[in-house]
Design a binder for these strands. Structure first.
Lengths: 160, 160
DNA sequence: CTGTCTATCTATAATAG
DNA sequence: TCTATTATAGATAGACA
């Protein structure tokens, strides 16, 4: 018990492996969050368990980070660190998701129930990012009392 | 000195922030490697420092993982071609979390706009969590359809 | 930006519910 | 499944190179 030395090798027992995967994945996401928070960085973690389940984390959103990855000059290497030089402004509009959501909201709960299942992951990602953005704005206001004139319609503005 | 409690908030001193970014990013990559090794999983980590530098890690490669992310069938257009299984939209309730959103959205777009702007951090957190849960369900459904075997649970995590 | 050192903090393996 | 507990293996802040 009490956590003996952990061998860094494949765990053969499935149930044990799944447990470990879950715990470590959660830890990984948490670490990523902290990194983004403390260092004002952008990061995304994409994981696929052996069982075939997918788990993603991204700040400000998975998609924006992945897009930024593709916007890089030459990200051809694998399994290693790559250096970039410039800042690519990716400003992805959330219009697509926004329209969808607005449309859904107009039709009420019933429509939402059905339609939400037809939303793509990306759109949900965008919606999430929008909320995160709003959240950070609230945080900023609380911490510094910043009243920026750029207060948009609290809606889905993904541009950062 | 000797490492007192680390506040999880943005580090203002740039040099300090960069150092922390480097260290934590390395730790993150290491953790990811271990996760992949022990749980026979696939994962990718994409990071962008505030200074604009990019660092990636991926197993088996960044590209393969990112591709897998994009290859993820979006229920919007792909759900009917999966293994010839019938894919009914009329599924059981997604989750309790969705009620939160439905509640907010059920009143229409205008109400949503106002409501979101007046939400506190706690509520935004809840809302975000709700969206993440819905996203996870979408992922789960997609995965379920593919592997058509064991069903675990998919889940998304968001920035806290 | 990265490596090294060390004292300390955090994540987590094993277990119980 | 998920959560809580606990003791320890592992990560890391700060200082320096």
């Amino acid at each position: 018990m009490v956590r003996r030395r952990v061998e860094i090798k494949k765990i053969e027992e499935k149930s044990k492996m799944y447990t470990t995967f879950t715990k470590r994945r959660q830890g990984l996401f948490k670490k990523t969050k902290v990194l983004c928070t403390m260092c004002d960085a952008e990061a995304a973690v994409l994981t696929f368990s052996k069982a075939g389940n997918a788990f993603f984390f991204g700040h400000p959103s998975v998609e924006s980070v992945v897009n930024r990855y593709f916007a890089r000059p030459s990200p051809t290497s694998t399994n290693s660190e790559i250096e970039g030089n410039e800042h690519e402004v990716v400003a992805p509009p959330i219009s697509e998701a926004e329209k969808k959501i607005a449309e859904l909201m107009g039709k009420g709960r019933a429509a939402w129930d059905v339609a939400v299942r037809n939303l793509g992951l990306f759109e949900l990602d965008e919606l999430e990012a929008a909320i995160q953005k709003i959240k950070s704005k609230v945080v900023a206001q609380a911490e510094e009392s910043i009243s920026n004139g750029e207060d948009q319609e609290a809606e889905f503005c993904g541009t950062d």
